[in-house]
Design a protein around this nucleic acid. Structure first.
Lengths: 147, 147
DNA sequence: CCCATATCCTTGACTGCTCAAGTTCCACGC
DNA sequence: GCGTGGAACTTGAGCAGTCAAGGATATGGG
């Protein structure tokens, strides 16, 4: 039973992500005690103006539900990398904000994540051009095809 | 803080997979009551000679642990899509085998999965050439860089 | 033959997410 | 001012996977 190339590439992508995520998870948890999901949360926070975001917006950019964010943020708050800040104008919203410690620890995590990523594309010697191509194709897929 | 392209594309891939998997999950569970993981298991089984595989080999090709396979297969056995078969020569190994029902149901699932995949690459009108390129790049990533 | 070691598989405890329900708060029409 | 609807968030229950430990069977060396 032959699969179409579209389905084949979809399954290949799922499989690749599984292995890739494991690599990041192993390095990050070994060296910093955080998961890839934790790291991604912190990174997204750091990219937001002021290092803070409404929790619901954080969920949106991460592709999680609001409750996923609540649960994921809890341990990061407990260990002091993130704080919860109330909104002055809207009593419903709570912001998640990187602490100074969070920013410092994130810098270390980022260094190891960069190393893992570099290793990943170094093994069969990727050309920069191909990394860019892959990036463009994934963006095309994620941008319009997925919602 | 600028990310390297290698790290950026890694995170993009993780994010794309999340959305993509949700799409497949929604269609498959809505129409057939199975998850994408279930579908993938059945599909891999169907690709093996005789529609049967040692459970440990199934784990390997799926990128799961043996215990993940045990847990994932259990409900499929309960609803009669898969059976457990003992090995005559080696008492330790158990095979998972597609039943006739499993084969029939899988054909339906495959049709909807194909439809989802086609939709995915139809929205911004992918060129066949680009799908092939993406496939090749993911293979390069999954083949050597990840294990 | 028997013991040591290794392989296959399952199970218990845990993690990280989901969905559904509930709480609190805002905004709007009257 | 006051209900009504909706948005932001949390919480309980459940599902899908992990790891670590354990049971059963195979294999190879004395």
């Amino acid at each position: 039973m032959a699969l179409s190339e579209a389905l084949d590439v979809s399954l290949r992508l799922v499989r690749a992500q599984l292995a890739l995520a494991k690599r990041f998870d192993n390095s990050l948890s070994g060296l910093h005690g955080v998961s890839l999901a934790d790291f991604t949360m912190l990174l997204r926070l750091s990219q937001a103006p002021g290092g803070r975001m409404r929790r619901v917006d954080l969920a949106e950019t991460l592709g999680l539900t609001a409750s996923g964010v609540t649960r994921g943020l809890a341990p990061l708050e407990r260990i002091g990398l993130v704080t919860r800040e109330a909104d002055a104008r809207d009593g419903r919203v709570a912001h998640a904000a990187l602490t100074e410690t969070g920013r410092e620890r994130l810098a270390d995590m980022l260094a190891t994540a960069e190393r893992v990523a570099a290793d990943l594309f170094a093994e069969p010697a990727w050309r920069n051009e191909d990394i860019g191509r892959l990036s463009a194709l994934l963006t095309q897929l994620g941008g319009a095809g997925l919602r």
